[in-house]
Design a binder for these strands. Sequence first.
DNA 1: TTAACGATTGACAGCGCTGTCATTATTTAA
DNA 2: TTAAATAATGACAGCGCTGTCAATCGTTAA
Lengths: 340, 340
Amino acid sequence: MKATINDVAKQAGVSIKTVSRVINNEPSVRKATQEKVLLAVTALNYKPNLSARNLAGTKSFSIGYVYCNPNAYYVIDTQEGILTACKEQGFELFIHPCDAKKEHITDEVITMVKQARVAGLVLTPPFSEMPDFVNAMLALDVKVVRIMSGDEAPDQLTPCIMVNDRDAAYTITQHLIDVGHQRIAFLAGDAEHMSTIERYKGYRKALKDNNIEFNQELVIEGEYSFDSGVDAVKILMAPEKDIHPSAIFSCNDEIAAGALFAARLMNISIPEQLAISGFENSPFSRQAWPKLTTANQPNRKIAENAANLLISQVRNQKANNALTKLYTPELIVRDSTTSI
Amino acid sequence: MKATINDVAKQAGVSIKTVSRVINNEPSVRKATQEKVLLAVTALNYKPNLSARNLAGTKSFSIGYVYCNPNAYYVIDTQEGILTACKEQGFELFIHPCDAKKEHITDEVITMVKQARVAGLVLTPPFSEMPDFVNAMLALDVKVVRIMSGDEAPDQLTPCIMVNDRDAAYTITQHLIDVGHQRIAFLAGDAEHMSTIERYKGYRKALKDNNIEFNQELVIEGEYSFDSGVDAVKILMAPEKDIHPSAIFSCNDEIAAGALFAARLMNISIPEQLAISGFENSPFSRQAWPKLTTANQPNRKIAENAANLLISQVRNQKANNALTKLYTPELIVRDSTTSI
DNA sequence: TTAACGATTGACAGCGCTGTCATTATTTAA
DNA sequence: TTAAATAATGACAGCGCTGTCAATCGTTAA
């Protein structure tokens, strides 16, 4: 049968409370005692019972991941990263897929948080970018860690894991320029997403730093979808248009895939007549043909990092809300921007 | 504060044990008493505490979903379906992504099952198609429900949710024939997946029923990937080949997308010169251009059904392992097989 | 050397629920 | 009508752990 705290206590020759102290890293345990206990823990392969802990203690050992994201690959990666951290730290994960645009979404999540007694929440866009939502969670005394786009935290509400989309976009744009392009179009994702805004900033900055004149006509508004890419290329490359871009910066791989597809349809050769870059390094980017130059975000690592941060907050109670960790996606050059 | 069983008991004027009986649907509770209790439950918005239940009882209120699937959309859909059932029934879900090909995968899952004390497991391919694995789980006295491909359960080990890929494939093939095709190629997915085998059977049967001679040359082995579709079309439509298919049955949308892409590259017009069908109704099929004719599997519904089945098994203890539910994916005709 | 102090440790109650078994209410048979 | 049988209910222990507080230990300062 599974070993309990009693078995460990007996084996180590101490009281159960001391075992409890050791496994919870509480102070006031002599070094020698700690070692005895740890030895017994290993010998019996003891793992504390989560239910008992949750029931007995005031603190909880569960965290939640609340998300609303059409990108299944992103969600899966993030889940796995969080799960890795949870396993390591003996925490439990409650996943809560939902619709961020639903009317009483905040109440719904509040109910779930109370019900599951989660001690903390990992938030990704769009939730991480909804201050009211975040505040509502904090008001419940739930710790929060946000993963979001930008190079510094927008506020001190919670620790943040920032994804530096701006610099990554700068790097991609610079790459496009380096391989000889001057007329670079920008295919935007959803305008309300921070990531679109940040990527746009990086694009603009790269143009500026290279003394390339910005041309509003080359910026096509859109959303994070395949169709958006298709439509944009149809507009940009329309025969009747006198000036065409020689390269396209797409806000994500899906848009890029659409752009690629439309270009093919129009008999535009990639990358000779038109270079196309993506963003995200999704399976999409490897399945496209030619393969897409893109930027890789290590979503699993980012999520694991976020979850570890969250768990240490939950553990220590004392939160360091100024804590920020920055990730910059890295350029992956593939065939869609360089001659094969 | 959250209401406990004590509050409900007080409010209803009964003992906590009676409340327990009511919420667990145990027999031997007078109708009137039950109603009193239920009223109090509603009034106080009482939800039993999972930790306490797990701790006190011999039965557990958690189930697990063990999976290894590169198709993120499938996984997400399945998760959501299971979650719906769990919420309704007051169960907790442990997700366990892992690598089915890892050496000690069975041991790994056994550890997780013991650790989390899950009472049951929802299994999808490939796990649902691994008899040794399933038996190992059953040996732990863990209930299992399998989602798998076929028209009847391969054994009586567990209840099964069968996805009738064969009939669906038959319907797709019949559709291809109906719109005038005779030379229909078959692009296989991974040969070891039951779904590939079943889809192949349906394809063969449709040909036979329509007195169309089967041609081995039109069957291309492959895997469930974009590249596989690309390669297949390059082979099938090679100019030097004297006979080309006029339609392609692809084992899933990803293969179909690859086929579509390759065909475009070769300046083959779709669907005029070549009709292409997919399978799965993934986002892929809607993003392709022209949109793919495909077969829709209601993965969320299937998973919800599986989870409900599992939970009722867990609840009743008595398992009806002969129980089988059959879903047949339905044909969705889009532009890739019918002139626009 | 000893009182006094802080550092360690343990005893014990109780988290919210279920399982067991005793008790009481109700029905049935005689 | 009453005893026996059955149905309905409740009292209580205890699941594995943590929080509280009291007991013990070692150490320092006088």
